[in-house]
Design a protein around this nucleic acid. Structure first.
Lengths: 206, 206
DNA sequence: CTCATCATGTAAGGAGTTACATGATTGG
DNA sequence: CCAATCATGTAACTCCTTACATGATGAG
């Protein structure tokens, strides 16, 4: 249900085609709300049917066409209404902590691999989030720049600060997950003291 | 896809009916993987069709029947195979951080309400996780006690430690979210210095 | 002319949500 | 005998995933 609001958030700063939208998406909102193009195109149609956006057909070359979507008044209102409404939280479905709770059923080597993969996963996320933070500070994120261009002066600080703040939260979460998994590796070493392998190296590195 | 492994994790400690399973579920694995009964019953059937569990029909009173499910060898193998396999991470879909990134579009009062709801949500989670931790330490979680009863001595410490560790991670995450949202409230106060209201009270409370 | 990129999808299926539906048993 | 709880689902729908499908344009 949040997909359409994620799309509106981007379209609100200016009309885009489905294709461009998808590109922008993966570089901005995509960090907090993933969506593949096979989901974006149909959603745009539904949003059009619901009157939240309006298509404008443009020619491209001799015969090519592309459709850029504008946010309608109804779309703007829907976005603001969502902002005012209480957020509906999703139920927890956390495969990593599910597995962690039953790791005694795994070989120590597999437990280690699990935590290492968890670290790798979150380090890759962390890198993205920190990259975004730098782009925000350096005003080098194209979406943010476009947004600021259509934002009244008084709102500019807030626009930047809230974005910063959101990504700071994501960075902290990623660091928390990494820290937890590192302690997980230590735990495996502690629970299987006789199994050597790369265990010692791991323990000293942290 | 993890649902069936969550179910196997519980059934592995002893046969249960769908009804009992559902009860146990909400008090144990349910903390990391939510599932309503309308999802559990069909999944049990599919698992039966796939040969992972076996139904045993029992009479109950004069005419009532109930079906208890046993894990088959194939089921046990499937669980262990899952434990060995790399975990597939879900794509991010985080409505809270999505909204936070665009809060400049909200009234300050709505931004505050949003962060307060976030705090309330995670405090309720936190309470559950900390309750679980106490149950683990006091050995007062019925599922854990049943599990330990069928666990060889050498595995007992690991069983307890991994469970503890999983919940510690959840507790930290919850605390992280709460801390972030508290700083969110301070940020709102900073960005709207002229709006008073309950702002001062909030700032002092934290 | 050919390849990268622009541009827009469909189709099939699995997972999850919400709401509804029904009947037996046991304790007070 | 009545209410709580034991017991087991179905139906309709939305959301998401994975894989496939197709054709135009512009740069070299």
């Amino acid at each position: 249900m949040s997909l359409r609001y994620a799309l509106l958030a981007i379209l609100r700063v200016g009309p885009l085609s489905g294709y461009d939208l998808q590109k922008q998406f993966s570089q901005s909102v995509g960090h907090v709300w993933y969506a593949p193009d096979s989901q974006i195109y149909p959603e745009l149609r539904k949003m059009n049917a619901d009157g939240l956006i309006e298509p404008e057909e443009q020619t491209r070359g001799e015969r090519g066409t592309r459709i850029v979507y504008h946010v309608t008044d109804a779309g703007e209102q829907a976005f603001l209404a969502w902002m005012r409404s209480p957020l509906s939280y999703q139920r927890v479905r956390d495969p990593a902590h599910l597995r962690a709770a039953y790791l005694e059923a795994a070989e120590p080597a597999d437990a280690r691999r699990f935590f290492e993969a968890h670290i790798a996963e979150w380090e890759s996320e962390l890198e993205q989030f920190e990259g975004e933070l730098h782009h925000i500070d350096a005003l080098s994120n194209p979406m943010l720049v476009r947004r600021l261009a259509v934002t009244p002066d008084a709102e500019r600080e807030r626009t930047i600060e809230y974005k910063r703040f959101a990504y700071e939260g994501l960075v902290e979460r990623a660091k928390g997950e990494i820290g937890w998994a590192r302690r997980g590796l230590e735990l495996v070493d502690r629970l299987y003291p006789d199994v050597d392998a790369n265990a010692d190296a791991d323990a000293e590195a942290s």
